[in-house]
Amino acid sequence: MNAVSPEIPMPSRPVSASRYPVAVWPWPIALGLLTIFGLLSALLGQQGIWLALSWAALSIPLIVTVICLIRAWRRPSSKGGLS
């Protein structure tokens, strides 16, 4: 379920950009809102443009996932993410 046991303090490392806190929630919230929009637009709209918007909105989380995976595997470093 996860690697770092909560009670073990983080080992001290040389300070690098990724050691500073980053905004955790913007990306998950954006992807969540897109998902909700995609689910509802096809359900409520049910016509041409709303269907297309639904497909687009629901593909974005998948596309973002694939991009992150490709980045990580192309350039094996801890900075493989989007920020």
């Binding site: 955790v24 992150c68 989007l82």
Partner: peptide, 10 residues
């Protein structure tokens, strides 16, 4: 908290 979104540390 300290990882940019989508990081996969390899």
């Amino acid at each position: 908290k300290r990882l940019p979104f989508g990081s996969v540390r390899r």
